[in-house]
Design a protein around this nucleic acid. Structure first.
Lengths: 212, 212
DNA sequence: GAGATAAGTAATCATTCGATTACAACATTC
DNA sequence: GAATGTTGTAATCGAATGATTACTTATCTC
């Protein structure tokens, strides 16, 4: 009957983890989940618990895996930039009758299928005042610009215009203009003008994921 | 000697407010301060206390004046859109030898002097998933698109391209590319390509306000 | 100049959130 | 099959933050 001095807490039950997995694999899943959530809610608007839930793990695990929320966001940005550059390099190497500029544009639009990737980048771009995020964002943006000039062979004007249309696409996605496609003829015209080829891709992405 | 039941607290001293002012005027000051802070840190990344400090008033006053932080941000977005449309209408009405497209572009770039205005808009644009913010952002974006077509006389392609370059400018500002102008030749080339005329404006804005 | 109204603050509260700590259980190696 | 490292969780904590409450004081009106 004497109270056994249990070390700290006896009621620890530790719910069964979903499935065990090498940390490298889990890391990828968490990064993908984080990309989707950060893309939708932005850096400050996202909680580590939302990321954890989306990834199917516990909140402390997410934090321990990346150290801090900021480091997690930086990892998301780096993954996004790596994915982007890989897609561009693939499109450049590919043999095709399609002009290389168009191939680049299509490769960019195809990144829409990686949920939140372009929007996470965009959130990073508009947070340039943050020392760490800004550094990564500027370096990534310039890397793409240089690639377009040096590897693709664009002039500065062509590269700048290409990037401008990329920012436009990001904005149209972020603002969810496709939500108005069916009901607003102006939205429809704008979408069909700004992204004539890949509209189907964008429209397929809207609807089911209106999380908030 | 009997303890006088003071209502709740006797030590209220109420520091002297900076200066008294009609609430309409104060409202404008708070909106301008909020625009600057939201532009730099985004919606979720901004605290009502940061806005209050920037405006020189107390945090509760900011909240009571606008009801909630979200309503404050929506007011910032509406003010930004009103300012933008007014600038466009002025540029359109103005007599000049400069082609109307260029005048619109210059009017847009001139908005850089209203600190945080374009970036607050941009933060709103990428938060389209939020029900209230998204609604306002889409309506504002489409209002501009329609103005460019109906009043300025642009084709859908011209209007879309114009908006694309606007998004590019917003991004270059948000990412603080001008911070690298002096040290990175590629950043310099990109800035001079993307915004040849109004570069001075942008550069004048960097440096002193690296708040964080 | 008294009363009413408008403009403002200090104090404080309930939540939320990132981070830390203390464990638990599976897998690997010897 | 014990020791050990790896993968994971529950509980909890302190700081931050939006909002509320209770006052205070300047200004306007009659």
């Amino acid at each position: 009957m004497s109270s056994v001095p249990q070390i700290i807490d006896s009621s620890a039950t530790a719910a069964v983890p979903a499935t065990r997995m090498p940390s490298d694999e889990r890391r990828v899943l968490v990064l993908e989940a984080a990309t989707a959530v950060f893309g939708q809610r932005g850096y400050a608007g996202t909680t580590t618990d939302q990321v954890a839930t989306a990834a199917g793990v516990s909140q402390p695990y997410v934090v321990r895996m990346f150290g801090t929320k900021e480091k997690l966001f930086l990892a998301v940005l780096h993954r996004a930039l790596d994915t982007l550059m890989a897609a561009f390099r693939r499109a450049l190497a590919e043999e095709s009758d399609v002009p290389v500029h168009s191939r680049m544009g299509m490769a960019y639009a195809d990144l829409l299928t990686d949920r939140g990737l372009l929007l996470s980048l965009m959130h990073g771009f508009v947070l340039g005042s943050d020392p760490e995020i800004g550094k990564t964002a500027r370096a990534g943006f310039l890397e793409v610009y240089l690639f377009l000039k040096a590897d693709v062979g664009m002039t500065p004007e062509e590269a700048s215009d290409f990037l401008a249309h990329g920012m436009m696409l990001n904005t149209l996605v972020g603002i969810r203009m496709a939500d108005e496609y069916d009901t607003n003829p102006d939205a429809r015209e704008l979408l069909e003008t700004a992204m004539p080829t890949k509209l189907g891709l964008l429209r397929g992405l809207t609807g089911p994921d209106k999380i908030q």
